[in-house]
Computed example of a mutant assay.
Amino acid sequence: MFIIELTYTQPLALVDQFVAEHRLFLERHYASGQFLLSGRKEPRTGGFILANVASRAELDAILLEDPFQREGIAQYTVTEFLPSMAAPALAGLLGN
């Protein structure tokens, strides 16, 4: 599992031009089961994505599809983690 932190590198006026396309990117990966949670930071300086993919290489390939990446709008920090505890509603995210 991976936590992706996006930090905007361009003014919000430029970010806003690509938000709709970025949301379509997110929706595709929610539909595939690869993305589990996402949302923006407060204050609005970027956002987070929780991804459940098999490898860092797979995640890197996915992130190349993000219009924020393509347009140089955001910088990405990726942290891999192995969940070991979860609330009952999220227990299905734990590995065997």
Results as ranks from 00 to 15, higher is better:
Gln34Ile: 00
Ile3Phe: 05
Leu37Met: 10
Tyr76Ala: 09
Asp60Phe: 00
Ala31Ser: 07
Ile49Ser: 01
Tyr76Ile: 08
Gly47Leu: 12
Glu21Asn: 09
Phe81Val: 00
Glu5Cys: 14
Val78Arg: 02
Ala51Val: 02
Glu80Phe: 06
Ala61Arg: 14
Glu71Tyr: 13
Arg23Cys: 06
Tyr8Pro: 12
Ala89Val: 12
Ala86Phe: 02
Leu90Gln: 07
Thr79Asn: 02
Arg56Lys: 14
Gly72Thr: 04
His22Phe: 11
Gln10Trp: 05
Leu64Pro: 01
Asp60Gly: 05
Phe48Trp: 06
Glu71Ala: 15
Leu14Gly: 01
Glu58His: 09
Gly95Ala: 08
Leu64Ile: 10
Arg40Tyr: 08
Phe48Ile: 07
Leu24Thr: 12
Leu6Asp: 13
Met1Asn: 01
Arg56Ala: 10
Ala20Asp: 15
Glu5Gln: 15
Glu27Ile: 06
Val78Leu: 05
Met1Glu: 01
Asp66Glu: 13
Glu21Ile: 03
Arg40Lys: 13
Glu21Gly: 04
Tyr8His: 14
Gly95Tyr: 00
Glu65His: 12
Gly46Leu: 08
Leu36Cys: 05
Thr79Arg: 10
Glu65Asn: 11
Gly46Asn: 05
Ala61Met: 10
Ala74Leu: 07
Phe48Asn: 01
Val19Gln: 04
Gly95Glu: 03
Ser32Gln: 12
Pro88Ile: 02
Gln69Asn: 14
Val78Trp: 01
Phe2His: 00
Thr45Met: 09
Pro67Val: 06
Ser55Arg: 08
Ala91Thr: 03
His29Phe: 15
Gly39Trp: 07
Ala86Thr: 01
Phe68Tyr: 15
Ala20Gln: 13
Arg44Met: 14
Ser32Leu: 13
Val15Phe: 10
Asn52Ser: 11
Gly46Asp: 07
Thr79Trp: 02
Gln34Leu: 03
Glu42Leu: 11
Leu26Pro: 05
Ala54Lys: 13
Ala61Ser: 13
Pro83Thr: 00
Leu90Ser: 10
Leu26Cys: 07
Gly46Glu: 06
Leu14Ile: 11
Gly92Ser: 06
His22Pro: 10
Thr77His: 04
Gly92Leu: 02
Pro43Glu: 08
Glu21Cys: 03
Ala51Gly: 04
Thr79Ala: 05
Leu64Gln: 15
Gln69Glu: 15
Asp66Val: 11
Asp66Ser: 10
Glu71Gln: 15
Asp60Trp: 02
Ala87Tyr: 11
Gly72Glu: 08
Gly33Gln: 03
Ala91Lys: 04
Leu82Cys: 03
Tyr8Met: 12
Leu24Ala: 12
Pro88Tyr: 04
Phe35Ile: 03
Gln34Ala: 09
Thr77Gln: 12
Leu12Tyr: 12
Ile4Arg: 00
Glu21Ala: 13
Arg70Leu: 09
Ala74Trp: 09
Thr45Tyr: 08
Glu42Ile: 13
Ile4Asp: 00
